[in-house]
Write a protein that binds this DNA or RNA. Structure first.
Length: 419
RNA sequence: GCCAAUGUGGCGGAGUGGCUACGCGGCUGACUGCAGAUCAGCUACAACCCGGUUCGAAUCCGGGCAUUGGCUCCA
């Protein structure tokens, strides 16, 4: 398939290091609060990417980190009077719960920062030994002047930029912390440089190196991580042994916006996933997300989600009778997915499949997208439907209508065909 | 200031150098025990602006503008 990489700035054919095995690493959340719709977008997109690649017959290992040691967690735990681990475990569980309720199940392994401290320390140690990191009284820092490749992803040269932060202990204002020295309560570990905790960027490279090595195929995350986070990751990993590129395919999802502004925890304009799922089910939400291309901005509005819900209802209403394969629409679907995961086009193909009654393709592709395009049926429901059909045939409309009324009240969509 | 993403019809949203995706909404008709749904058709004659290349550009090139974001934590 073709995939856009931020590194090259173009769509290019996906050529993985092993023809039939794909390694995918996606930056997970910092677990200090409930996940919001912006997270839903990013993780639904990568869920679909992984499912699609798997569907094409390749083996994929999808690894995601969980940032469970960080300033925000420390502060929040302090505010709420709970331990850091209690807070982190709670919101990690909430995150996993929300991901499940969105039908996200393509991740093979969630790796916590705090369970990879030895790997982190080891990596920092090697960076110090290589001479690209140095130790001060406040921590271990990566020396950005020592890394030539900086700025590849973002187009920004870190050594030439102006920083708002002034920390006189650092050689260069933009040098970033690999290890922060100090006592941070529960999450403080011994290290060769003294007690402390990891910097922000190091966990990803320590984790990805452990499971994938210094080079792997796809690294994903939100657009907001390109700088400085992903640049820092490249600097760290490629400084170990000079292997380049660390990753060839950097896939970044566009922002989810609210009234034109990026949804974020810091802005406080976020809608949690569970709030949305109170009104709409995961099929509607996924349909809404996939209705726009993953790199475009996506404006979250009630109207937009409701619109997606109507479109999905329509597909289900049309897809009632199985009338065989629609090869053209099947090809259109895979062509769209092959083309930089063009889900809006893929959904157009889904509509065509529904219209032509290719139910087996709808089921199969629905699994790739994580959306159920067919009406759910159960034994109980079909018995009720049969009874109603008989009653209507006998023109006993009062009883038939009463059953329909009750079914609708119970949240079941009932649509009769003309007699 | 520097860097980046985005800019298409009432709305959402694709592709493609010329042959007008698709959906939602709206309109008309058909069908229908009733709701609803479905079916057929119509609707919008759209491309941020200014230049250029071309027989032809929304699509390629140049220059602007606007919105959002990154440069501090962020999916």
């Amino acid at each position: 398939m073709d995939l856009y990489s931020t590194l090259s700035g173009t769509v290019e054919p996906l050529v993985t290091r092993h023809p039939d095995r794909v390694s995918l690493f996606v930056c997970g959340p910092t677990v200090y609060d409930y996940p919001h719709l912006g997270h839903a977008r990013t993780y639904v997109v990568f869920d679909v990417l992984a499912k699609y690649i798997r569907w094409t017959g390749k083996e994929i290992f999808y690894l995601q980190n969980i940032t469970d040691v960080d300033d925000k967690i420390i502060n929040r735990a302090h505010e709420e009077g709970v331990s850091q681990s209690m807070l982190a475990r709670k919101f990690e569980a909430e995150y996993i719960r929300d991901m499940r309720s969105l039908g996200i199940d393509a991740v093979n392994y969630y790796a916590r920062a705090t369970t990879h401290i030895p790997e982190i320390i080891n990596q920092v140690d090697r960076l110090v030994a290589r001479g690209v990191a140095y130790v001060t009284g406040s921590g271990v820092y990566f020396n950005v002047d020592m890394f030539g490749g900086n700025g590849e992803l973002s187009g920004q040269d870190a050594t030439k930029r102006v920083s708002l932060v002034t920390d006189t202990s650092k050689h260069h204002p933009l040098d970033f912390a690999l290890w922060k020295l100090g006592e941070f309560g529960e999450y403080t570990w011994d290290s060769p440089w003294g007690r402390g905790r990891p910097g922000w960027h190091i966990e990803d490279t320590a984790i990805s190196e452990k499971y994938f090595g210094q080079q792997y195929d796809i690294h994903g995350g939100g657009l907001d991580l390109i700088f400085p986070h992903h640049e820092a990751e490249i600097a760290q990993m490629e400084s170990l042994e000079g292997k380049h590129p660390m990753v060839r395919y950097w896939v970044h999802t566009g922002f989810l916006t609210v009234k034109g502004e990026k949804m974020s925890k810091s802005l406080g304009n976020f809608i949690t996933i569970r709030d949305v799922l109170r009104t709409w089910n995961k099929d509607v939400l996924r349909y809404f997300i996939l209705l726009s291309h993953y790199r475009s901005p996506l404006e979250a509005t009630k109207e937009g989600i409701a619109n997606a819900g109507r479109a999905l209802d329509h597909i289900r209403a049309v897809a009632k009778k199985d009338t065989g394969e629609n090869q053209n629409a099947r090809k259109a679907f895979t062509d769209a997915m092959e083309s930089d995961l063009n889900t809006p086009m893929a959904l157009a193909a889904i509509q065509a499949l529904a219209a032509s009654g290719d139910l087996s393709a709808l089921k199969e592709f629905g699994e790739v997208l994580g959306i159920n395009f067919l009406h759910e049926t159960s034994a109980t429901l079909s018995v009720l439907q049969d009874i109603r059909a008989e009653l209507r045939a006998k023109k006993q409309f009062d009883v038939a209508d009463m059953i329909r009324k009750r079914m609708i009240a119970a949240g079941i969509t009932v649509t009769d065909l003309p007699l």
